[in-house]
Design a protein around this nucleic acid. Structure first.
Lengths: 205, 205, 205, 205
DNA sequence: TATGAATGAGTATTCATTCAT
DNA sequence: TATGAATGAATACTCATTCAT
């Protein structure tokens, strides 16, 4: 590897280290409650140093969010690819979104910020929004595909996606805020039952 | 009316005006993202002037939230009280939470802020959390009551509450962020179908 | 008494009440640490109300100080007037300044503020200074008078005043700040010994 | 000298410059009466800039006081160390405290602030108080040592310390406030006479 | 690349004072 | 007289960003 190549690689690793630090600090203090100084300190840098790696606080935020969405996509793909029966694949894809965020509360936090129309002043608005929509579509489309293969119409398949997405999101919110404890219920059990029921409906149509 | 009475009335109206202003500003920027200056300016005051009406920024925020929850409770009660058949009452109570927030997006914004991260950093305190839980319980308990009257076991009724709550929350999020448009679907239709299906399940048990 | 006279008398009593409150609050929080609001609250008033009785915060301060000096003068006079022997009178007048402030730590606090050239920006500077000097002279002059009657020259008498004044002031400072405890000594005993010694010196000259 | 060394040196000089500015401003207005803005402006800085050099206003104040006490100690030590006869040493140590503050009115101002009210509201804390007591003890203890060597009992020596300390403090107050002029007397002459008399007393015992 | 120092705008809150009622 | 509401300036402190070194 050339010297230049080495430098580039080192630079990339530093970026990643900073991004990882940022993820942790964000998850502890919330996006709005986190200062660049805090991220820098956690990463072992002075605030000014971060500006060699990221253009601004907002740009850093954006990159952290991007990484989170990438991880979501990868996770969902790997979840389905080993399965062969359509029913199994539908079940898996219906659960994958929920499961990823259940297991990665930091990303859930980041996701909620994204959802809330936050980051308005960032000025990266539209781009980011399109990327998010794409990521979501990629993450959720397997549900529709498999549902159609099990006999659902296109419309039915599409609504199944919405319903699963909404139910997962709602349960994650309940889980994340501890509100689910009020009801002595398990979020993941609720989600699994929901998806199972939906599959039964399609099969028994 | 006495002069003193007039004064008190004027004072109350000013308080309300400030609260209304605060509602809007808070709902746009959240607790941490909103400065007292912003609220004051929006209400036509100097920052210091607000301290004659509220002890602190947090106290103001708390009052805004309280009012929002009160409105939720009142709305839900009034929705059910005129109905007589258990099925109608179950249907109405299953929808009421969703409908209130669908029609009052500002309150939805406030609600989401409350949920986020369990308000850890805000320090609005245990009291507030208990009040919120109570308000939610009051708002949702009619679902369980009516379900049992239609033949559901206590456990089933309880899970119905969780499921409705989660589904409503998820759909509201999709609606609020415009994400539901991606799927060409109507949040309220999805919610109504969900509640209807659930009622059918109970009846056909 | 006329109606007008009654009104005036009531007004005067209210003034006194406020001044008394101010004294207490000052002594608890220090002059600089005390706000008009605090004085008002302690006196059962709103801040604005005080402006009917005093022109400004500084004017209120000034009056509190005046009262304190008046009390000092009265106390010193009453201390000496019953005594007949010159030696007794010299002893009493040498101690009176110290004793008053030992027994009235609030006034000591006020006094120190006065000394420290504080209140500079008040704009009542010169007047106040002259009044203070007069009060001090009145308070201390008996020492010189009696010393001369016991045989001291005018110069010796004058220096005796300075020395007693300085020693008293220093001991009061040590007493007030608790520093005297470091030495396991009693301020009043030190003062009494000092004055006694000085009297002996004069007599044995 | 290395580049880093240069930087450190520059930084230290800036700190000193700020401390010097702070010394002056604090001595004029006291801790509570002085704003960070005022110190910053006097030092040619923005308020925020001071936070790179000191953690808080109180920390800055504490450092200013520390420096003042250090100077007192050093001065007193150097005053005595060249003398050999016990009488000379006693005389010098009895005067040193007074002389230092007579020559350094700014430090006197700082000292008086420290004394006032025992710093109750300032909250500079126990540590600071202990340090102050230690500095005073170090500054005054030579008086006792030398007195004992001249034949005084431990008790007598201890009381001599209190008496000298009090007399010096009182004279400094009179000097500092200009009150001494009222009596046409010289503070330093009064102090010297006082110490001389005390030494005579011990020798003639 | 990275730092340390600096800025300028921002934060919530307090204060002396004013004034309509 | 007295109040309650209001102002405008002040308070200590924080933050994102910049830049010489």
């Amino acid at each position: 590897m050339t010297i230049k190549g080495k430098r580039v690689k080192i630079a990339e690793e530093k970026r990643k280290m900073i991004l990882t630090s940022a993820r942790e600090v964000f998850s502890e203090n919330g996006l709005e409650g986190t200062s660049l100084r805090a991220v820098a300190a956690h990463a072992g840098y002075t605030p000014g140093a971060l500006y060699f790696h990221f253009d601004s606080k907002e740009a850093l935020y954006a990159e952290v969010l991007n990484l989170s969405l990438q991880r979501l996509e990868e996770r969902i793909k790997s979840e389905i690819e080993t399965l062969t029966s359509h029913e199994e694949r539908l079940y898996a894809s219906g659960l994958a979104f929920f499961t990823f965020y259940e297991e990665n509360p930091i990303d859930l936090d980041l996701g909620f910020y994204l959802f809330r129309g936050g980051m308005k002043p960032a000025g990266l608005g539209r781009e980011r929004d399109i990327a998010l929509n794409q990521a979501l579509e990629d993450a959720l489309s397997p549900i529709a595909e498999e549902a159609e293969k099990l006999g659902a119409t296109e419309t039915e398949a599409n609504l199944l996606v919405v319903d699963c997405f909404a139910h997962a999101t709602g349960l994650l919110l309940l889980l994340h805020t501890g509100r689910i404890r009020m009801f002595n219920a398990s979020a993941s059990v609720r989600m699994k039952e929901y998806v199972s029921e939906k599959i039964e409906q399609i099969k028994n149509k």
